[in-house]
Simulated scan of single mutants.
Amino acid sequence: MSIEKKVWLISGFVTLGLALVLFKLWIELNHFDEDPTQLPDQASVDAYLQDLPNLPSYQVKTGIFIKSFSFTGASDVHVSGYIWQHYEDGVHDAIKPAEGEVGFILPEAAEAASGLIEDAYRIDQGGSELIGWYFEQTLRQAFDYTSYPFDHKTVWVRFWPGEFDVNVALIPDFSAYPATGPNDIFGIDNRIVMGTWERENTYFDYRLSDLDTTLGIGKNEYQTNLPELHYNFVIKRNFANAFIVHMIPLIVVTMLLFGAVMTVTRRPNLVERHDFSTSSVIGTCSVLFFVILLAHVQLREGFAGSPVIYMESFFFLMYFLLLAVSVNTYFFAAEAVPSLWFIHYKDNLIPKACFWPFVLSCMVIITAYNLNLKDSPKDEVGIQVQN
């Protein structure tokens, strides 16, 4: 077996191995880890509240049902549905909302005045009253999408009690749902239109507030350590859509670039057959550069103001490849630097055979780095808009 065949055989095995590693990393990157703060039942809620420095004076059962949601901006989610609360006679009389009043606050409502919260029903249940409200609100949240298109997002509805001068804890109304376990999806319409997203999970949890103020209310120390009830629904981006829009063009351009590298030769019969010239390869790289640049600009417009995202890293890799192929072709044809033996060896064999292993090695490193970022602790995030 000739040296050329051995080199290409090694290149093929390395390329196949790296492709399998990349596929495995993509599966891990697309995996959603359950949030350990989930509250699946009343016992978990009681255990959480018992650990607070100030036990709440009142506990109000609160439930939610999402009828629709849509993304109206890079930081805005429009949500509509129903919220209800149970008020027991003789227990909640001091905090029970009157007709036209609301027993909760949605602190992340972007424009509360233009939103809608109205009475939907009041039902006497014998010893308690069930009050339900219909709401339509645009909620503003901090969004993280550095793992695009493998991002899983948690969209939440954050509750504050309607009273600030008493210690009230809103607790989930678990009895209103058929199942609230760690893997159950509840509180959201099964026929809701998800667009490019898929439902992964729903759950309640608490997060302590950090207002850094007593809101001017004397002896109101618990306002800086308030257990805020969150209803969360986790969604996963449909990878196929993003793959078709962004990844397939990158793969096609990479194959065309590899084809340009394979035309680099000094053998007379191949030069004539491939019509090889330095200017033709550099011209091909120039055309492909503008194709990649336009696709990159389109992607960047969807994530304006954000850090570099996972998919965007591949565009930077393509810029480097375009430059490397042009430089390799120039030095090979000019023979200006004989010391660069790896370029001239066996008719540019090493750069040709290393093309795919190098590309896939970079993709594996980029993916492994983003997987490490995903697994590292970070602040709570929500969802970004990208169709």
Results as ranks from 00 to 15, higher is better:
Pro182Val: 12
Ile185Gly: 04
Arg191His: 06
Ile192Tyr: 03
Ile192Pro: 15
Met194Phe: 04
Met194Pro: 02
Gly195Leu: 08
Trp197Asp: 03
Asn201Trp: 10
Tyr203Trp: 09
Tyr203Asp: 12
Phe204Pro: 01
Phe204Ile: 07
Tyr206Val: 10
Arg207Asn: 15
Ser209Asn: 11
Thr214His: 13
Leu215Ser: 02
Ile217Leu: 11
Glu221Gln: 09
Gln223Thr: 07
Gln223Arg: 10
Gln223Trp: 10
Asn225Gln: 13
Leu226Pro: 03
Pro227Thr: 03
Leu229Met: 03
Val234Phe: 08
Ile235Ser: 03
Asn241Gln: 11
Ala242Val: 05
Phe243Pro: 12
Val245Tyr: 05
Val245Cys: 06
His246Lys: 12
Met247Glu: 12
Ile248Ala: 04
Pro249Lys: 09
Pro249Arg: 05
Leu250Trp: 05
Thr254Met: 08
Met255Ser: 11
Leu256Phe: 07
Leu256Ile: 12
Gly259Val: 00
Ala260Phe: 06
Val261Arg: 02
Val261Gln: 10
Thr263Val: 00
Val264Tyr: 03
Arg266Ser: 11
Arg266Ile: 01
Arg267Trp: 06
Asn269His: 08
Leu270Gly: 00
Leu270Pro: 00
Val271Gln: 05
Glu272His: 03
Arg273Trp: 01
His274Cys: 07
Asp275His: 10
Phe276Lys: 01
Ser277Ala: 05
Thr278Leu: 13
Ser279Leu: 12
Ser280Val: 15
Val287Ala: 14
Leu288Phe: 15
Phe289Gly: 02
Phe289Lys: 05
Phe290Asp: 05
Val291Cys: 14
Ile292Glu: 09
Ala295Arg: 15
Ala295Phe: 12
Gln298Asn: 14
Arg300Asp: 05
